[in-house]
Nucleic acid binder design. Structure first.
Lengths: 237, 237
DNA sequence: GAGTGGTCTAGACCACCCG
DNA sequence: GGGTGGTCTAGACCACTCC
């Protein structure tokens, strides 16, 4: 079944099941085939099947229940805090992005308090600022910096409509593997007052992050301000 | 070695290694004994050892490197956002807790906006409030509620010096498996002004969480307020 | 080349859920 | 009682790191 993919068998099975869940072939609440069935179906040892299922559990696609089976959850967990949710109504998808500073190459100054490696410093810095709007109301303002390591034509891509992480994964095979973040509550300064159209003293949430990728030594640094008046920062873990 | 603990073998090994890391017997950067060494040392199959090590990886205590070994990270990742870090200096461990409301059994009123199951409602609610201080300065104020399901003598335990999660894990074999959280920035109200000794309008971070456990249908509900003036909320993912 | 973790097999027995 | 996932064993070969 998976002989020619080049991937480990458990990873092929993981990808296959993940795809089937994301495409709706298995829906939330459905049971996956049992471990023994999958084992027989694809000619794999049960522990290989378990390896694939364990990763689906870890990534939030399924939960297991002894005596019952593997139950599809239907949506993956976000990476740290990334998703968001309306406090008043369901987020309809009216998400838009306004580029405040287009991606440009700079030299590094600082990285929101995180330390950068000499490699990253030498490569130079891709810098951009974005304002994110939900239903045409500004909710996020973020500053992103990443080292310009083997990212040909990065500054040519549109960041308006695509997620940075989607772009990195599909165009450069860069995946987020983890990271660290710091959170603060603070009063809006003049710039944020203007972006968010709020009064002085308005409480704003700030999120600094250093994100690890599958490229050793390559990190993404970002600072995000969030107006939580109407929308809460939301995450699963 | 682990015959009489009643725990699964991999879990006993996990706890043993975790303890050794937390006690500093293995320090950050050290290599753990190899899988084959641990296997021989404790008379376990290698896959049982790997099960324990995989969980240490998952919980952030070690990282593995093919061809080298299992490298101790030294500190665990928090569950979602849980850990904290000084913005000015290293957190020296002067962490103390003041119980504002001692654990008591109540009936459920609400769960910070999350929905609770009928089972949880029927079981009643263990409720407590804590103020957490770092170097004698108040930093967190949290309200915790959990269903009183099979938790004998829970209200007898001291919550001053032990983490709730450590208590649940060691005394009741309850482990956190995931959860959902919502974050807000807001102005301190009168109660928070008093607890944190800050002025009116001071920005405060609020964190609502519904935490899943390995007991199906049992959740922990908590609301945390954080004064991020000196200490940031900190998390790895 | 010796040792490490990564992948994989083919079994076994157990605890748990459901009909 | 039959099927499920949970735990565990005893092997094997591979990719990688380090000396």
């Amino acid at each position: 079944m998976f002989e020619e993919s080049g991937l480990p068998l458990y990873k092929s099975l993981y990808e296959k099941l993940r795809r089937q869940i994301e495409e709706g072939i298995y829906r939330s609440g459905d049971l996956l085939p049992s471990e023994n069935e999958l084992s027989a179906l694809y000619g794999l040892a049960r522990s290989t099947v378990r390896n694939a299922l364990d990763r689906l559990v870890n990534d939030g696609f399924i939960v297991k229940q002894q005596g019952r089976g593997s139950i599809v959850k239907g949506k993956a967990k976000g990476v740290g805090i990334l998703s968001l949710k309306s406090t008043s109504s369901a987020l309809g998808g009216n998400l838009s992005t306004r580029l405040i500073v287009k991606p440009e190459i700079r030299s590094w100054k600082e990285a929101f308090g995180y330390t950068i490696s000499q490699n990253e410093r030498d490569a130079g810095c891709i810098y951009f600022e974005r304002l994110r709007l939900i239903n045409n109301r500004p909710v996020f303002f973020d500053i992103t910096m990443l080292p310009n390591i083997n990212l040909p034509r990065f500054t040519m891509h549109k960041l308006e409509n695509a997620s940075l992480f989607d772009l990195l994964r599909t165009a450069y095979q860069i995946e987020v593997t983890g990271g660290v973040q710091h959170l603060y509550a603070l009063k809006a300064n003049k710039e944020l007052q203007e972006y968010f159209q709020v009064k002085a003293g308005h409480p704003v949430l700030q999120l600094n992050r250093k994100i690890e990728t599958n490229r050793p030594g390559m990190h993404i640094y970002s600072k995000v301000f969030c107006n939580t008046q109407e929308y809460a920062l939301f995450g699963t873990f």
